[in-house]
Amino acid sequence: MIHVNIPPIDSEEPQHSAGIRVGKDLLKATKNFTEESPATSWWYVISTFLFMMAALAVAGIVEFWPIRFIFSVLGGLLIVRSFITYHDYLHGSILHHSRIAFWLFYTFGALVLTPPRSWLESHNYHHGHVGQISTIVAGTFPVISTKMWKESSRWQRLVYRIQRHPLVVLFSYPLVFLINITLIPLLKNPIKHFDSLISLIVHFGLITLLWLSGGFNLAFFVILLPMTIASTLGCYLFFAQHSFRRMQIVSPESWNYYRAALESSSYMRMNRIMQWFTGNIGYHHIHHLNVRIPFYRLPEVMDKVPELQAPITTTLSPSDIINCFRSALWDEDKQRMVSYKEAREIEEDKYL
């Protein structure tokens, strides 16, 4: 299981002067929502996995390519929802005592190039460093300040731009999931990350089997296209919910777990269909506040805890997507995210 350093919730912390719960008191308010219903969890897991397998089966069996395409896209969206259940299992919020769930999710993780060991390490780092200046790319996208940008060499700037470029998100299937999450950890420590080798064998073994038995089209519609869709959407959600115009970067002296959850994690407002496919991960500020809350209870938390009802909000609209990618650097003076162009203009104004 993933072990995120969540502060104990039974210690005392003063309330906000206006009577609003903050810090540990706010975390305490979410405690009851961590109670899982195993029957509900299994219902969501089984139905999601069956829908996913059925969609991919239709994409593989039907000959009429428009139908194959539709079900392949549907399969990709269902991989995203399946991944959220896998994500919650590794957080220990659902089915963490079930051996059946263990084998189901670890098999799924191998198939979609997210071997548990490397993914847990990177995701654990992510939860412990959200909202901080960092050049590290393990489990997160780097964020540096305008001052650091000014002092960077051309090569360092190029690398930073590449790491945060939209094409990295678009091609996250090979770049993020294959290379960064699976291959690099295996090359660095083959013994520790033996499950990465298993993942590579399982994933590419299935592609090879499909290709040999039904040709490229079968492998494309059943694996390659759905994985591309799922990887791109999943990677963008991860990027956008911690890289947006109104997010806050907190100094190491002022950083704490609660501020990172509420000020450096967004609530992504979606329609009900996308909310279902993305497993409520849009309620990201609540997830970061308490990772033990099952994904299907996140809307309930927002509905019943007033302090969580006015989060920093993003959407999947084209303008918000553009703004997320433009929000590239943290300006300490303005205390907000700025674009590369804004950073250059700010620097030029200082010399006028």
Rank of each mutant, 00 (worst) to 15 (best):
L209P: 04
Y106N: 14
M53T: 13
F105C: 02
I46G: 10
L209T: 14
H165E: 02
D88F: 09
L186Q: 01
P226V: 00
P311L: 12
T313G: 08
Q132W: 02
F49K: 09
F244N: 12
L158F: 14
S152A: 15
T135Q: 13
S231N: 12
H129V: 11
F51A: 15
D25E: 15
F33M: 02
L218Y: 08
G215D: 03
S153P: 04
N323Q: 13
T114E: 09
L113E: 08
T228V: 01
S37Q: 08
I9R: 13
T208E: 02
F221L: 07
T228C: 13
K28D: 07
I100G: 00
D303N: 15
I198Y: 06
V112K: 00
E307Y: 10
V73E: 02
K150I: 01
G279K: 07
R246C: 03
P252R: 06
G128P: 01
K192R: 15
L27D: 00
S327G: 06
T313S: 15
P306I: 09
N271T: 08
N189I: 04
Y236K: 09
V202K: 01
S213W: 03
K304W: 07
V301K: 02
T114K: 11
H97V: 10
L316R: 04
Q15G: 11
C235G: 03
K28R: 15
L78R: 06
L308T: 09
I184G: 05
K350F: 03
E307R: 09
F238Q: 05
R245Y: 10
H127A: 00
N217P: 08
F177R: 05
V137L: 06
R68A: 11
G234I: 04
V62Q: 08
H203V: 05
P66N: 05
L209K: 03
H16Q: 09
N32S: 12
F216R: 03
S327Y: 00
P185G: 08
G139L: 06
V169N: 03
I2L: 14
W330D: 02
W43I: 11
E63C: 01
I321V: 14
E36M: 07
D303L: 15
I46E: 11
H96Y: 13
S17P: 08
V137N: 11
R164F: 05
A138L: 11
D10T: 08
Y267H: 15
V112H: 06
P311H: 11
A18H: 11
H16V: 03
